[in-house]
């Protein structure tokens, strides 16, 4: 996340892109979501300093930024592992075995949903429908969808990700 950076560092690192995004909207408030997204791509998540930086860049009350950051589930407000595995557990996936796969992942990674492995490699999340039900059961690893999952496929995926560096986010 933004640790070790100061508010003014963050502001200056984001300023140009945020300025750019602001031109798309008639109000600066509209740029809160894109600005948080930019910050998340840069720092892997958002936190108090990010909110303050975004608020100051957009000249909006800081609480507006925090409200948005906490309403939407894709903003990571806690540190995540290098790879974020989001397994869909919604109905179409559930009907095709998502619960068993979740148990499998929990066992393999030795973490519960919402947790990060001790080595910081993986964060595991159970998520709502990913909009890829034709591939059920499906997960999203970082930005990539993987469908028609089986336990074997999961093992292969974990193995291939394990030593990869975090995906280039932007």
């Amino acid at each position: 996340m933004s640790d070790a950076r100061s508010l003014s560092d963050i502001k200056s690192e984001l300023a140009a892109q945020v300025q750019q995004v602001m031109t798309r909207y008639p109000t600066t408030r509209s740029a809160i979501m894109p600005a948080l997204d930019l910050a998340q791509q840069k720092y892997g998540g958002v936190d108090g300093l990010t909110y303050q930086a975004v608020a100051e860049l957009l000249d909006v009350p800081e609480i507006w930024v925090f409200e948005v950051a906490s309403f939407y589930s894709l903003y990571d407000r806690a540190a995540t592992g290098r790879h974020h595995i989001r397994l869909c557990t919604n109905l179409p996936c559930l009907l095709r075995g998502a619960e068993a796969l979740m148990r499998h992942l929990q066992q393999r990674l030795a973490v519960g949903p919402g947790e990060t492995t001790g080595d910081g490699r993986f964060t595991l999340s159970a998520v709502e429908c990913l909009g890829a039900c034709e591939l059920a059961p499906v997960l999203m690893a970082n930005r990539q969808y993987h469908g028609d999952l089986t336990a074997a496929k999961l093992d292969a995926l974990l193995a291939s990700l394990a030593d990869q560096p975090a995906e280039e986010m932007s």
Binding site: Y25, T27, R29, S30, A31, I32, M33, P34, L36, D37, V60, W64, E67, V68, F71, Y72, S73, L74, Y75, V127, E128
Partner: peptide, 21 residues
């Protein structure tokens, strides 16, 4: 870009979301 909120499919919620709320 949305950010993980099903409700934003509801049209007025979506407009709020574009307004940065």
């Amino acid at each position: 870009k949305g950010a993980g909120a099903y409700i934003c499919g509801e049209e007025t919620a979506m407009l709020e979301s574009i307004e940065g709320r």
